[in-house]
Design a protein around this nucleic acid. Structure first.
Lengths: 226, 226
DNA sequence: CCGGATCCGAATCGATACTG
DNA sequence: CAGTATCGATTCGGATCCGG
């Protein structure tokens, strides 16, 4: 029996043996946004030691979760296998659950493009979504969230350079929203959009402030029913 | 910043900090079945070191996932808080995902009453469930699975002594099913009930073998659509 | 028996440096 | 860019011990 085995024959145990090691699930989180190079992952997970990243990628490949794909000519990327992509429902459920415990950020905590992208997906309610096209800034991260036909698309924007891994959406967003960590109170429904603005949790720096009503209805994580 | 922190402000990261340590999720899995004493948990997780169990229980309490409840007069139990119970969808999704990677058990792997109980919940399809009342044996574990009004109830049976933590269901089961690890092929739909019997993956030692049709329809984890 | 606490060697992780 | 190598700091695992 492997040393890391939990010694049980059970689906949960098997899953935890595949993706339960430290950092593994965060690697999967970033790869759920799209294929990433080794260096992209390292930048997106600033505190991961490089030997751990290397080890995890090997383990995830061995587990059939991740695949290593040479890029035509130069470089290579890691991407999820279909089996790895099947973790999306788990990841979204886990993100929603963890959201309930988020307080204010600790000193040194960062928001990364991939984590914010997945956070938006986590909070997205297809059944109540309204058409939407906004630019969202949180910390240094800027991205464009577009809801069309009840489907959410997120494009990451890089301040000066062109966006990573995709085309800039055509046209201008309806509004530009700038927020800090306090935006979680809007997502949770603790405050109304008007209150969020009044308390400086969120600002609409371009466009109509009323867009926040659509935003808050579309992106929402309800507190526990208790 | 805490030493164990991942340094990111994100729901997934928060969740992993709460329940991502080794053994933590398996403790939660067992507690999802019902409140458990320290010793119950130790028996249900045979390979967990006692200091780790003790540490995890403290951490889970601190995280608001687990509560320590004195038992009227003698002893005490650990139980999930409402927030901890909210992990059930995560656990079921994770169990379904891990199920896809289950091969044959390694030598020394065990099946515990709680892991089998959660496995049944994982595989339960309410929308296709039929009324059912069977006794299921896998390894040393025996339990009674009853589907009534589209709701699954599982009662753990102890061979000689009375069952743990609940009353024996009244009456006799419709059938007694004895299975080994190969039962996963029936759950996955790799084999029909008839084939499962022919290949000795499953045996119906009392009652009508046709009950396996209902069983296989009620408990099913579809392979990846790929 | 229940509910842990303590001790210690083994394995893992984190930080940094270095390489093809 | 995509990793290895190294090494001290932590954590884990296994065993033992202890108070009710």
């Amino acid at each position: 029996m492997a040393a890391r085995s939990y010694g049980q024959y059970c689906g949960v145990t098997t899953a935890v043996e595949l993706i339960g090691e430290r950092w593994a699930l965060l690697i999967v989180r970033d790869l759920l946004v799209g294929p990433r190079r080794y260096t992209d992952l390292k930048v997106g997970l600033p505190r991961i030691p490089t030997n751990i990243l290397s080890t995890r990628l090997k383990e995830l490949q061995e587990g059939g979760v991740v695949r290593r794909v040479p890029l035509h000519g130069c470089g290579l990327v890691y991407e999820l296998t279909p089996y790895g992509r099947a973790l999306e429902p788990v990841m979204l459920a886990l993100g929603r659950w963890g959201f309930q415990s988020m307080g204010d950020p600790d000193e040194g905590d960062v928001v990364t493009p991939d984590s914010l992208t997945m956070a938006l997906r986590t909070a997205f309610r297809a059944e109540r979504a309204t058409p939407l096209d906004v630019e969202l800034h949180v910390g240094d991260v800027a991205l464009r969230a577009i809801v069309h036909d009840g489907v959410l698309a997120v494009v990451q924007l890089a301040p000066p350079a062109p966006p990573v891994g995709g085309a800039v959406p055509p046209g201008d967003p309806e509004a530009v929203i700038v927020a800090g960590p306090g935006i979680r109170h809007l997502i949770a429904g603790d405050v109304t959009p008007a209150e969020a603005i009044a308390q400086d949790l969120v600002a609409v720096v371009r466009g109509d402030e009323r867009i926040l009503n659509d935003f808050a209805q579309t992106f929402h994580i309800a507190p526990l029913a208790a």
